[in-house]
Each structure stands twice: as structure tokens, then as C-alpha cells.
């Protein structure tokens, strides 16, 4: 029971980051029907910005907001340079475009910074834990969970209470109709990328502070988590994405602690198999978004 509770808290910490990443993926998918395999690159880019800032002797509390800003700006730049040019193209083209962005960004860092691991300063309390009864809780996890909850509430308010949120939700439901109703496609798509970048930035702070280092291919992992969590939740559903993020985090923690030692190192593989099975038996994900074939 205690162990389960411990797992639950660890899973919540991990899942929070995934939820933020997945929400960013889902927001963009909603307006562009683009499954963004380049989402993780926002974290790679921010990671190198953090490295550069660290070289200047800046401390982590300046670097953290820098990461967020950097992710938003990168998201907008990538949209302008790449995704704005393939709007309305086939799903195949969109998928490979995002993969292309992913590879170009990591290759550029490989070219100009080298393949070696780069580090930057992070808060000293990252690995501290405190006890709550029989539970051992990481200070960092606590911060992550609290900030994530605040972010999710703020995002919900943004989506429910503002004109931009209304436009975004309308565009997600039916892009063409939303345009006919006067939603400006350019601004809603850019807004979606900015929001997606912001969420990736916040997730990126957690991700980067926890890992403490970055490499040219550091984006693959967060990208996979975000994309998979969004898919688990049911693409197109924002609530589903958040749910998918928490589900993925929890599943990882549970598997890691429960699998027999001999295959514990295969956790990632097992998670993948489970996800593949989920798609096979429930291709629409956990939350079904109403969708019918148009004839």
C-alpha cells in the first residue's frame, strides 16, 4: 500500500512533465492536424541556451525563465520557417516535415557544438527529498506537480475565458468553419505554436534541471513522451493529452518498480508494447473525439 502510494507520487511527478509536453503536442495538432515530432527540439534548443548561459556564469534562476522564453521563440520560428509552408498538405507530408525539423535541429547542434554532453548549473536542491510519514518525496517532484497544476489551471482559463482560447477551440473542432466565422488562421496557428512552446518551455525547465545536461539528440526522449502521451489520450483532445501524460508517467513508474529485475531495463520497451497494444485495440486513444468519415 505504502509502495503503491509512493509510486503514485513518483508517477505524478513524472507524469506532470509528460502532461505538459503532450498538451503542447495536442494544441498544435488541433489547429494544423500536425503530429509534431519536432516538439522535443524546443527542449534541445533551450538546453543549449542554458549551456551558453551557464558558460556566462549565470545561475539557474535566471536560466529557468530563459529556457521558457527560448522555447516560445523557437516554436514560433520553426512554425514560420517550416510548418507555415506545408499547411494543408497531406498528413504524410506534415509528419515527415516535423521529422525533418527534428533532424535538422539536432544535426545543427552536432555540427556546431559537437556530440559531447554539455552541462549547465541547476539548483542544489534538485536531488533533495523530505519524508512525509513513511513516504519519501523529492522536493523537485513537489515543485513540478505544483507548477504543473498551476499551469494547467492557467491554460484552462486561457482556453475557456479568452477570445484566443475560443478561437483555438473552434479551430480545433473545425478549422474551415472557424475561418468562415472570422477566426484568423494565421494568428490562431501562431498562437497555438506560442502556447505549445510555452508549455514545452515549462516542461523543459523541469526536464533540463532534472537531467542537468543536453546533447544534440536530447530532444528524442521528450518528443516521444509528449507524442505518445498525446496519442494515448486521443489526439485532438486536450483533456485526453493531459490524462495521457499522467497515465504514461504512472505506467513507467509502476513498471520500473514492479517488473522482475531481469527485464527491468526493458521498461521503455514494455511501455512501447503496451502503447502499441492500446492503439491496436483502441486506435482512437483513451478519450474518443467525435469523428466520422465525411462522404
Amino acid at each position: 500500500m505504502i509502495e503503491l502510494l509512493q509510486n503514485l507520487i513518483d508517477g505524478l511527478g513524472r507524469g506532470s512533465i509528460y502532461a505538459l509536453l503532450a498538451l503542447g503536442v495536442a494544441v498544435v495538432f488541433g489547429v494544423m492536424h500536425l503530429l509534431n515530432f519536432a516538439h522535443g527540439e524546443l527542449i534541445t534548443i533551450s538546453g543549449y541556451a542554458a549551456y551558453a548561459a551557464g558558460q556566462q556564469g549565470w545561475s539557474w534562476y535566471i536560466i529557468a525563465p530563459l529556457i521558457v522564453v527560448c522555447a516560445v521563440v523557437s516554436s514560433l520560428v520553426i512554425e514560420r520557417v517550416a510548418f507555415s509552408r506545408v499547411r494543408g498538405e497531406s498528413d504524410f507530408t506534415l509528419l515527415l516535415t516535423s521529422f525533418g525539423v527534428h533532424f535538422v535541429v539536432s544535426a545543427v547542434f552536432l555540427l556546431y557544438v559537437s556530440a559531447s554532453v554539455k552541462t549547465y548549473p541547476r539548483p542544489g536542491w534538485v536531488t533533495n527529498t523530505y519524508s512525509l510519514g513513511p513516504l519519501n518525496i523529492e522536493v523537485f517532484d513537489t515543485v513540478v506537480i505544483v507548477v504543473t497544476i498551476i499551469t494547467l489551471i492557467a491554460t484552462t482559463m486561457l482556453l475557456q475565458r479568452t477570445m484566443f482560447g475560443l478561437a483555438l477551440r473552434a479551430a480545433s473542432a473545425d478549422f474551415d468553419t472557424a475561418r468562415l466565422m472570422g477566426v484568423k488562421s494565421d494568428s490562431v496557428i501562431r498562437g497555438a505554436f506560442a502556447l505549445s512552446g510555452l508549455l514545452a518551455g515549462i516542461a523543459g525547465v523541469f526536464w533540463l534541471m532534472r537531467s542537468g545536461s543536453t546533447t544534440p539528440s536530447a530532444g528524442i526522449d521528450p518528443m516521444l513522451k509528449g507524442v505518445l502521451a498525446a496519442l494515448i489520450g486521443g489526439l485532438g483532445s486536450l483533456r485526453g493529452a493531459v490524462l495521457g501524460g499522467f497515465a504514461l508517467g504512472l505506467a513507467e513508474v509502476l513498471l520500473r518498480s514492479r517488473l522482475p529485475d531481469s527485464i527491468a531495463s526493458l521498461t521503455e520497451g514494455v511501455v512501447f508494447v503496451l502503447i502499441a497494444l492500446l492503439f491496436i485495440f483502441r486506435p482512437q486513444g483513451l478519450i474518443t473525439v467525435a469523428h466520422a468519415e465525411r462522404v
Partner: peptide, 13 residues
């Protein structure tokens, strides 16, 4: 490596 990524991106666009 950049060449590969850029080719994919360039052709898609």
C-alpha cells in the same frame, strides 16, 4: 548529417 535532415525538410516543403 545536416545534409540529410535538410534534404528531408527541403523536399517536404
Amino acid at each position: 548529417t545536416v545534409f540529410l535532415g535538410a534534404s528531408m525538410l527541403g523536399f517536404m516543403i
